[in-house]
Design a protein around this nucleic acid. Structure first.
Lengths: 336, 336
DNA sequence: GTGAAAGCGCTAACAG
DNA sequence: CTGTTAGCGCTTTCAC
């Protein structure tokens, strides 16, 4: 366990110079710098993050807070953020809020305040003003994904436009009876995502001069099973059956595909189905979907954060997250 | 940002007493302790983990290293570990090695050595002796999941027995032609899991006096698509088609179910299918499987680790991870 | 461009 | 049971 002193001795300089040479702060001649680097690596020296953190106030550690980890979307965002942070020399400390209110309180009143992290990324979390203030008081930059969070720069997907694009794709193919799975107000957590997507669906219908039929809208819980059950309802009746379905997530869309199959309907011949996400299973089910890019979202959040920490000059200017229609085999023109 | 000094003043004691009262180390009278607690919470005092870490050598932070995060198994193990750690007052710092060799090297030669963590949990990672030594030299306890790693206590699933149990379930139902998906030596990473499971399959066949038929074994890559493709091969030919399939993972088993459906075969009437994992989709597909419990695995790893850190007396004694046959609707007796 | 030295905020002997 | 005090290993003025 070599310390800075030994490196200094070996390089024939002072500890102050070693610190400057290795951290890149302050002036050091190129010659000295490489001498120090050499000594450090020969000794296997790595700065102690606790000592450095105490002295400088910077920990090179970022807290990433998620409501849940064991789901494709969240684990992929975290993966993207962790990779980007590691590349910049930062560690990632993970806080999963799944445990409920008590756990959430302890994270915000204790864990995040003990100066282990320089900044925080909050993923799909509706933070209270108190939670935001606690972090602001500590001068910890905070960025969100999936916002909006008041007073916090937040990367967000335009769910309204996403839904509108998906629905327009179906309308553009010639569908007139388009069902929707996912618009239940009872699942209106997460910044009202279900309601917003439903509004996009409704507006796209209006754009195409299609009259809204409330019976074609089924609430569901964003799981494959929920999509399956909803689609069975939608597709089960032989009269006035929709020829297309916009599901607000890929999981529900895949559930709908399986429901269609179980009903003896062929996708896309008898019914077209489109989802949202482009998750890992979408290609296998040949699902047309609106892709979002969670890994990139994590990386972009890191760019934004490092800019706030003054570590970078390339702050993303557009806080709107990209999305893209991916046309695969689950959508087609309706039959004549 | 109140410091320990202010708390000490407010409580009318010394900083040392505050430290003792709050950390629980050393003797403090109950009266003093509650006085200190009161003062601390009034001031919103939270110990600085950098200062505390520097002074004590303990960071109350554990590193969790995974080869990949965006997969059900890994994110669930991490979730379990994070929850258990948070409950004990520990933070979780995540290292994802997905980036390849360079990233892996930097994690082991730099990130883990900078004294940010007290201990390390390695999930499904074949650590080199150098990597283990680097950690041992720092006196950082290390526990593995999915081992074995030399010189490291490792929680592991007995893949041989898992496969044997799955195959015996099928044989016990009366199946004689039992296929296997997943035994490819070409996917033999992860401690030879595929090969071990294949051996369990072979031994179970022998137990049931069934002659091994090499044509009934198809290698696959542990994805749904891989399972689908392999099952199509296995089930496609009308003669000598297996009446049951043991897939080495639920994802492949689900792919096999979908392949059977596409071939017009009914599960379980025409073919029984069993998987391994009990992942989140298994119930939806009514899949019989050998469950493993990744969340608990993460928690158990934490128990083991905290025992090594001297924080706990309840070290798990059995390093064999539990598994369990979950019979659902995808397996049944073969047709007469 | 480099060195000397004063902390950063807490913990852990040690003494009482 | 509690207070005093000397660090923990760096970073950062401030001189030079």
């Amino acid at each position: 366990m070599a310390g800075i002193e030994e490196v200094a001795k070996k390089a024939g300089v002072s500890t102050a110079t070693v610190s400057r040479a290795l951290s890149g702060r302050g002036y050091v001649s190129e010659a000295t710098r490489s001498k120090v680097r050499g000594a450090a690596s020969e000794l296997g020296y790595v700065v102690s993050s606790t000592a450095s953190g105490l002295a400088s106030g910077r920990t090179r550690n970022v807290g990433v807070v998620v409501p849940l980890l064991s789901h494709w979307y969240f684990s992929t965002v975290v993966e993207g953020a962790e990779t980007a942070l590691l590349r910049r020399g930062y560690d990632t400390t993970l806080y999963n809020l799944m445990g409920g209110e008590a756990e959430r309180r302890s994270v915000f009143t204790h864990f995040l305040l003990r100066k282990r992290v320089d900044a925080v990324i909050a993923i799909n979390l509706e933070l209270t003003v108190d939670e935001v203030r606690a972090l602001h008081d500590l001068r910890k930059p905070l960025v969100g994904i999936g916002g909006p969070i008041p007073d916090v720069p937040t990367l967000a997907l335009d769910d309204f436009e996403v839904a509108r694009l998906a629905t327009s794709h179906l309308a553009g193919l010639g569908h007139r009876r388009i069902g929707h799975i996912g618009g239940g107000r009872e699942f209106d957590i997460d910044f009202h995502l279900p309601t917003t997507r439903r509004r996009g669906y409704e507006v796209a219908l209006a754009d195409a001069a299609i009259t809204l039929d409330e019976r074609l809208i089924r609430p569901a819980d964003f799981t494959m099973k929920g999509g399956y059950v909803a689609a069975k309802q939608l597709l089960g009746s032989p009269v006035d059956r929709p020829t297309a379905i916009f599901a607000a997530s890929d999981e529900m869309a895949i559930g709908a595909i399986l429901a269609a199959r179980d009903l003896g309907l062929s996708v896309p011949r008898d019914v077209s189905i489109i989802g949202v996400d482009d998750n890992q299973q979408a290609p296998f089910f040949d699902l047309t979907t609106i892709a979002q890019f969670p890994r990139q979202q994590g990386e972009t959040a890191v760019d934004l954060l490092l800019a706030e920490l003054g570590e970078s000059t390339t702050a993303p200017t557009d806080l709107n997250l990209p999305f893209e229609l991916v046309v695969r085999g689950s959508t087609a023109r309706p039959q004549e």
